[in-house]
Design a protein around this nucleic acid. Structure first.
Length: 474
DNA sequence: TACATTTGACCCCCC
DNA sequence: TGGGGGGTCAAATGT
């Protein structure tokens, strides 16, 4: 059957994370199904097997492209866009698309970018990413909101959190893209700038216990730059978590301004941490050391969270996404974001031009990062979300201080503290073992302060804001 | 030919 | 003090 065939393809594909099956079902669902013991499809199994591919290189399979796209979308949708998809998904058995990307207006720039994006046919992206991604990103970056939203609610109201979610999709897309791109010749990927605007080189990947996702290790390619980051991606290709270590001792590399074409601006590709990139790109703030900052965790997984449970229950986090980078405020910024996500490809495209080595060199040049003129961006302000803390669905700002795998649940548990100085409230979040899509949040203590306002406007809103300025100060 | 990614293996840290 | 696990290294592989 068709499915089988695809599965096969999947297997062949190195990227375990992206089960081709996605087309049929989202990975998460598959997982869920697996957990439930009711394997949704044969695919699930296959997928599993595929998960740990041995060095198989991706070959840009013709077939794959479509599938990939689809998957990406699905994933994306799943991630961010829960809204549309939610209904559909829920209603449908098709888990594949958890969320569908909402069609949103895209700025011209975005459109152009998209258009430029090579692989992704305009068809795909434009609809998906451009629309959502941008908006989402902006939000995301704002803070990594984790919203606990009911599945349905998710996107209905594009609230911040939602937006974040949305962004996710974009990210997801980006990620997917990223990954796909990875599939691209290695060289092409090399040192490619991520959304955060920095260039990263993958130096390792490992399956971490308790984590469903493989963890990838990246180093900043800038000479002498100690910054490293760990990226965990969900099978969907979504970034489950990103942790930065160290601070960049250099400004962001300028995005290659090669062609005037839209791509240019985004030279970056997502390393897999697409998120980061988003910010950076958008933000272009030279300052952004966002990433660099000690450790930031971005969880996007949550995006999928479904039902927001009250404190105790299973809370679904939309996603915790902390974009390292700044977020674009407003939808416009989105463009960039969305782009960014997609940009990978675009970026790649652009970068392809240059020899990898050059790319690296370009990094060094980064000093001007901010300027990148990629026309792409609209001067939108990008707010950098502070990676340190994020406003979660519960409306409070939390800082992740640990993660651990607890018995009884294969999923890692993340520990958060309320960032309010006087507040001792803590909570830990973990995926429900029975329902990977659901997050269980347990709170300890009571807040002795009011819930921080969430600003819709990324820039202004966060006190913590990650606005570049603030960060810098920090 | 050069370079990036993959991945098994090793090292070190923490419990 | 030992074991487990995370993080890093480096050869192999592929583009």
């Amino acid at each position: 059957m068709e499915v089988k065939e695809e599965e096969r393809i999947v297997i062949a594909k190195p990227v375990a994370s992206r089960p081709t099956c996605s087309r049929f079902k989202s990975f998460s669902e598959l997982l869920a199904g697996a957990d439930n013991a009711s394997p949704p499809n044969t695919c699930s199994e296959n997928v599993v097997s595929a998960i740990r591919p041995k060095t198989v290189r991706f070959k840009p399979m013709v077939n794959r492209a479509p599938s990939a796209v689809i998957s990406s979308q699905a994933e994306l949708s799943g991630i961010g866009v829960s809204n549309l998809s939610d209904k559909a998904l829920k209603s449908d058995v098709k888990p594949t698309v958890v969320y569908k990307p909402l069609a949103k207006l895209v700025s011209k720039t975005t459109a152009s970018l998209l258009a430029n994006m090579g692989n992704f046919s305009a068809s795909n992206q434009p609809t998906l990413q451009p629309t959502e991604a941008p908006a989402q990103h902006a939000n995301q970056e704002k803070k990594n909101f984790r919203t606990q939203v009911s599945p349905n609610l998710h996107q209905n109201t594009p609230s911040h959190g939602e937006t974040d979610q949305i962004s996710e999709p974009s990210k997801a897309a980006s990620q997917n893209i990223e990954e796909d791109p990875k599939m691209l010749p290695a060289a092409a990927n090399a040192d490619r700038p991520s959304y955060d605007g920095y260039n990263w080189r993958k130096y390792g990947q490992k399956q971490v216990k308790g984590s469903e996702y493989p963890r990838s290790y990246y180093k900043c390619t800038h000479p002498n730059c100690p910054v490293k980051k760990k990226v965990e991606r969900s099978f969907d290709g979504q970034i489950a978590e990103i942790v930065y270590k160290g601070e960049h001792n250099h400004s962001k590399p300028q995005p290659p301004k090669r062609n005037s074409s839209g791509n240019q601006g985004f030279g970056f590709t997502s390393d897999g941490t697409g998120q980061d990139t988003n910010n950076s790109l958008l933000s272009k703030n030279p300052n952004e050391k966002n990433e660099g900052s000690e450790e930031r965790v971005e969880n996007q997984n949550e995006i999928r969270s479904y039902a927001p449970l009250s404190y105790q229950g299973k809370a679904l986090l939309h996603y915790e996404h902390v974009t390292t980078g700044a977020l674009n405020a407003g939808g416009t910024s989105e463009n960039s974001i969305g782009l960014s996500g997609e940009c990978e490809e675009g970026s790649k495209v652009g970068e392809d031009d240059q020899p990898r080595s050059k790319r690296r060199k370009s990094e060094n040049q980064s000093s001007e990062v901010g300027t990148s003129g990629e026309g792409i961006q609209e001067p939108r302000v990008v707010v950098q979300s502070s990676n340190d803390s994020e406003i979660m669905g519960d409306g409070f700002r939390w800082r992740k201080y640990g993660q651990k795998v607890v018995k009884g649940n294969p999923n890692p548990r993340s520990y958060y503290r309320c960032t309010s100085q006087k507040c001792n409230v803590r909570k830990h979040v973990e995926r429900a073992s029975d329902d990977p899509r659901a997050f269980v949040t347990t709170y300890e203590g009571k807040h002795n302060h009011e819930m921080p306002l969430r600003n819709t406007n990324p820039v202004a809103s966060d006190p913590d804001s990650n606005s570049p300025a603030t960060k810098d100060k920090r």
